[in-house]
Design a protein around this nucleic acid. Structure first.
Lengths: 102, 102
DNA sequence: AAATATAAGTTACTTTTCGTAAGTTAGGGT
DNA sequence: ACCCTAACTTACGAAAAGTAACTTATATTT
C-alpha cells in the first residue's frame, strides 16, 4: 500500500466532492429544495449520473430525499445540515471563478 | 445542445477543480514549491495522472513549472497568483472536512 | 376500457478516463 | 562500458461517464 502524508479527512472529502457533477449539484441545491427534473434541467448532467450522484450524496448524509406520492410522483431533494455546511466553500469557489475564469 | 441555467464560470471552474486529484495537488502546493516526486509521494496519485494534471494546471495558469538542469534533472512546481487565489476555497473545504468527516 | 401522459428513474451499450507497471531519456559517477 | 536517478511516457486492462431507449405507476383523455 502506498503511504501518503496528506490529511485523510480532506482526502476523503475530496473523494466525494471531487467526483464529476457533485459540487454543481450541491450548488444547485443551495437555492433550496428541488425536484429531480429541475436539477437535471439546470445542469448539463444526464439522468443516469444525476441519479447515481444523488444516491451517493444521500448515503453520505449531505442530501435528503423526500417522496410525495402524487401523480405522477414528485421527489424533492434538499441539503442537510452537513450539506449546507459546505456553502462557504462553494461560495469561495464561485467568487474565485468570477474573478479568474472567462 | 442541452440548455443549462447554471453559472458558466463556476461550471468551467468545476470542470478543472472537479477532476480527480486536482484539488489535492493544489492543496499540496499551498505548502510551497515542490518537486514532482514530492507531490507523488504525498498523494495516492500515480505518476501518469500527476503528470497529466500538472500539465492541465499549467495550461490553465494555476501552476508554474520550473526546470533546473542539474543531474538528474530537477523540476519544481508552484502556484501562480491564480492558483494561490484558490487558497480560501480549499481551506474552507479543509475546515468542513475536519468537522464533518471521520 | 383502452390509449395517453408524466416524473423519476433504470438498462444496455459505446466512449472516455483511470490505474498499474514497464519503458525511456539525459547526463554524471564508478 | 555500465549503472544510477528524476521526471516523465507508453501500453493496456479496468472502471467511470455519456447517450438514448425503456420501465413503472396512476390519472386523465378518448
Amino acid at each position: 500500500m502506498k503511504e501518503t502524508t496528506i490529511c485523510p479527512r480532506l482526502s476523503k472529502a475530496m473523494e466525494l466532492l471531487g467526483k464529476r457533477w457533485t459540487t454543481l449539484i450541491l450548488y444547485q441545491l443551495l437555492d433550496g429544495s428541488q425536484r429531480f427534473n429541475e436539477i437535471e434541467s439546470a445542469l448539463p448532467v444526464s439522468g443516469r449520473l444525476l441519479s447515481e450522484r444523488l444516491k451517493e450524496l444521500e448515503k453520505e448524509g449531505l442530501v435528503e430525499r423526500k417522496v410525495f406520492t402524487e401523480v405522477p410522483v414528485r421527489v424533492e431533494y434538499s441539503l442537510t445540515d452537513k450539506g449546507k455546511a459546505l456553502e462557504g466553500a462553494i461560495r469561495e469557489v464561485e467568487k474565485w471563478s468570477q474573478i479568474w475564469i472567462n
